[in-house]
Amino acid sequence: MKGRVLICAGSDSGGGAGIQADIKSVTALGGFAMTAITALTSQNTLGVQGVLGVEPAFIRQQIASVMDDLGADAIKTGMLHDVPTIEAVCDELTARARGIPLVADPVMVAKGGHHLLAPDAVQTLKRRLLPLAALATPNIPEAEVLADMPIDGEASMLAAARAILAHGVPAVLLKGGHMEGEVLVDLLVTAEGVVRFEDRRIDTPHTHGTGCTLASAIATGLAQGLALEPAVARARRYVRAAILAAPGYGGGHGPLDHGVTVEAGRFD
């Protein structure tokens, strides 16, 4: 086991996304996952039925408890649903996690369409969270909000990623899964240049939690000493394998097989 990853995110009762997907992903890639839970959700593959926020003071206490004893080699943030939550996480990370790479997954909308970020919190996320991050991992709809522009192709993906860089984050992985077509493109954009990742689309509804999974897998790579581009490349391979091995659970957007790296029957 190598690489301590502190995850600040919401819980998914269905197990496919959120804290549950984060822990599984970090573990599957050989890291050690720790958590500061920001919200509880009642959800399944069909959607989100309810959200219960955690008191900001207790979110801060969870972060402090982990950092004061266990420490971390990387941080990952996911669902930070309102202004007080973003402020609490950013304040505590500023105080206790300076110099530790942060992967910020700007979770805004669940796979089923439920909004997971208050509209008035977007500016706070831009102002407080992005400058703390080493990498932001928005999908197309999230990037449109963060960049305040429509995205309709690869050229506008690049323009949006560069607009997000202007908020102070040094790297953006803009995920192209929401674009139409058989070929999907992700762009890793920094001030130094662009790395383009391309894959064939997998025709499946079982993609619940892909964003959480990818961001946590990248954070694990960074925690284990990988440079950013190799960490992204490995994380993308892991997510693709987990989608291909999805168990088909639920009647909607089903979960991935986060244990795809585990040898079947190893402990029999």
Rank of each mutant, 00 (worst) to 15 (best):
P150E: 12
S25A: 12
F197L: 12
P84E: 15
D203Y: 10
K175M: 01
G78T: 08
A171Y: 02
V145L: 15
V145F: 14
D268Y: 11
V107D: 00
D203K: 12
V83I: 14
G71K: 06
T41I: 08
A160W: 00
M157Y: 01
Q62M: 05
V83L: 10
E263R: 15
T77L: 09
L158D: 06
F267H: 14
E55G: 11
L116N: 07
D268K: 14
A246V: 00
A233W: 06
G113S: 08
E142N: 15
E229M: 04
A104P: 13
R96K: 03
R266L: 11
T261W: 05
I86T: 08
A97Q: 04
L29H: 06
F58L: 13
T213M: 05
L146T: 14
D22A: 07
Q61S: 13
G250R: 02
A133T: 11
V107M: 05
E198I: 00
H167R: 14
R96Q: 01
P101Q: 02
A235T: 01
G10Y: 02
V54N: 00
H208S: 04
L188M: 07
I86A: 07
E182T: 13
K2A: 07
G30P: 09
G71Q: 07
G50H: 15
Q61H: 09
R266S: 08
V172K: 00
M79Y: 10
V145C: 14
P138W: 08
L244H: 01
V260K: 07
P131M: 15
A245E: 01
L228W: 05
I7N: 13
M149W: 11
M179P: 07
V145Y: 14
A121W: 05
L93Y: 02
G99F: 09
R236D: 04
L165N: 11
L40H: 06
I37L: 05
L80V: 10
V83D: 09
A241M: 01
L173C: 07
G176N: 05
Q43M: 06
T35S: 09
A166M: 13
V48K: 04
G113K: 01
R98P: 12
F197S: 08
S42C: 13
T41R: 06
C90R: 07
E154A: 04
V66T: 14
E229T: 08
P205I: 03
L146G: 13
L125M: 15
A33N: 10
D69R: 06
L129M: 15
I100R: 04
I75V: 14
A72S: 03
L116S: 09
F58Y: 13
A219V: 03
D69F: 03
I100Y: 01
D148H: 15
G3A: 05
